[in-house]
Design a protein around this nucleic acid. Structure first.
Lengths: 104, 104
DNA sequence: TTCACCTGTAAGCAATTTCTGACAGGTGTA
DNA sequence: TACACCTGTCAGAAATTGCTTACAGGTGAA
């Protein structure tokens, strides 16, 4: 995992709502609308959070057609497992993309 | 570690500059001005980042008087060690402070 | 005194993140 | 047709974060 990917992962998890999403999905897969109801947030907001979690590789979504023909997008957690230590962070930092200042 | 503390820790580490700070300090303690020069950022900016890292418990700073009487603030990494898994996150999420909507 | 270091902080701006409300399209049932 | 579900997206407000510039005070040496 590169330093940039690690930053993205940490940023994705550094949010109470997104932690609740992960906690809920750790108990089993769920589709978007129902998940929004359970967590108590609006569907567009949940959509945004799920995008960040999926981009960071924390969850994955699959669009399925339920028995009665409705399109349902189910999300579930991936098997991520990351250890945070000064040493592991230092190793990841070595692969960070360079800081740019006046790079046009 | 409570859910709120975890969020603070993740937020503190979810930044390239702060990762570089941790990586540098993992090699040994250093004082603020020198650290700013080594990383290549301004001292006020470094000060702000160090505050976040210290608030999250990632680093600690001690103000010392060097031999020639100058006040130097040395920072070093703490021995943090956190594992990120759907299960560990779910456990921490259980202790999150409640989401407030219209709590005046 | 002046210079070179060290520390901290406040004001203001730019960029990003978070969130709401409104919209659009799909299927199946009454 | 109308309603109840499902999906997605966009525009704009609100809040937070990141960063720069400028300032303040300290010590020791020339």
């Amino acid at each position: 995992m590169t330093g940039d990917e690690l930053v993205e992962l940490l940023a994705a998890l550094a949010n109470p709502i997104r932690l609740r999403i992960v906690a809920r999905l750790a108990d089993g897969r769920q589709y978007v609308s129902q998940l929004a109801r359970e967590i108590g947030i609006s569907r567009p907001l949940l959509h945004m959070h799920l995008q960040k979690l999926e981009a960071a590789g924390v969850v994955t979504g699959t669009l399925e057609l339920s028995g009665d023909g409705k399109a349902m997008k189910y999300f579930e957690v991936t098997g991520f497992d990351v250890r945070l230590t000064a040493a592991t962070l230092a190793a990841a930092t070595a692969t960070l993309s360079p800081a740019r200042k006046e790079q046009t």
